[in-house]
């Protein structure tokens, strides 16, 4: 059984289509990344799947329950870390978790044990009696994730979980996500930090303007293209050099970083053409500081797909 399955899931706000006929499945125990530019529909998708919003059309099954017919049951079995920390700042860290534990039907000794476990894990136990209003952004983010786990849900939605965290805290969160996945928990998270998605996700879905534009395992998305990136750092950039590079038919894209005098060239066949390009740069008076040929990263693939989609839409 899939942990999550959507069927033509659509959400409209007036004439704006925020989520447009999304079809995807998330397997149990999977870490599933939802990527997309600002306003792509990532948060709306999470809000639909956590029953905060009702779909305009289409449906979804989460943990075996229909998001329209069994919204209360869905809310019971999922954990949600929202875009904003959504914490009560006049209450202490302990009081916040205590309230949400009770709201999710966790009580008595089990509740006390769970709250202690989470606060200790996130290094917040010594601050349990401090009001959340006095917490740093990182501490609030950790507490917000702790809240989403207070009832030990099997499906967890995390909206930008590492956003605004220092590198150490971000690493702790990523380690936690890996550990939860090993325990069989399903994690759906949205992020704009593509490095996080690359390190954590089994599969990713890229959405733009509410539409799914790519879905698959990371290896699949990366291997769908055999393109390589040639990066040439020069002492000084010259338009003549750029024009010379553009003349090669194997060159698919070219971008220039003036601040570092670096030319990045997307190639169809790097082995054959790289020496020729280098030769051409030198012949046009270029002083080469370094040359590097690399596979495209998820970021490169993401930008290419999103830009391509934007061009198609125009």
């Amino acid at each position: 059984m899939h942990a999550i399955e959507t069927l033509e899931l659509t959400k409209k706000f007036g004439s704006t289509v925020a989520v447009n006929k999304l079809n995807f499945e998330v397997e149990e125990g999977e870490i599933f990344g939802v990527l997309g530019p600002n306003g792509a529909g990532k948060t709306t998708t999470i809000r639909l799947l956590t029953c905060l919003l009702a779909p305009s059309s289409g449906s979804a099954i989460v943990g075996g329950f229909d998001i329209i017919k069994d919204s209360i049951r869905v809310r019971e079995i999922v954990g949600v870390q929202t875009e904003n920390p959504s914490l009560y700042e006049r209450l202490t860290a302990y009081e916040n978790l205590d309230f949400f534990a009770e709201a999710y039907n966790v009580s008595g000794e089990q509740k006390k044990r769970r709250i202690r476990e989470l606060l200790e894990f996130f290094g917040l136990w010594e601050f349990k009696d401090k009001k959340v209003g006095t917490f740093s952004r990182g501490m609030k983010q950790k507490l917000s994730i702790a809240r989403s786990l207070v009832h030990d849900p099997n499906i967890i939605f995390l909206d930008e979980p590492t956003s605004g965290l220092d590198p150490e805290s971000a690493r702790e969160i990523k380690d936690l996500m890996k550990s939860l996945s090993k325990q069989g928990k399903t994690i759906v998270f949205s992020t704009h930090i593509l490095g996080d998605a690359e390190k954590l996700c089994n599969r990713v879905m890229i959405i733009n303007k509410g539409k799914k534009i790519a879905l698959g395992a990371l290896e699949e998305l990366l291997s769908n293209t055999n393109k390589k990136i040639l990066k040439i750092a020069l002492r000084k950039l010259d338009q003549k050099i750029i024009d010379a590079i553009k003349c090669f038919k194997q060159v698919k894209e070219i971008s220039v970083d003036n601040s570092t005098s670096t030319v990045s060239v997307v190639l169809n066949d790097s082995e054959e053409v790289t020496p020729e390009i280098i030769k051409s740069v030198v012949l046009n008076g270029g002083l080469i500081l370094s040359v590097n040929v690399a596979n495209q990263s998820l970021e490169d693939v993401y930008l290419r797909i999103v830009r391509g989609n934007n061009v198609e839409n125009q």
């Binding site: 049951r73 949600v80 904003n84």
Partner: peptide, 14 residues
Amino acid sequence: ERKTIEALLATPIS
């Protein structure tokens, strides 16, 4: 105003 409503609405409280 305090942006605490989303987590509250996400709970299984009717």
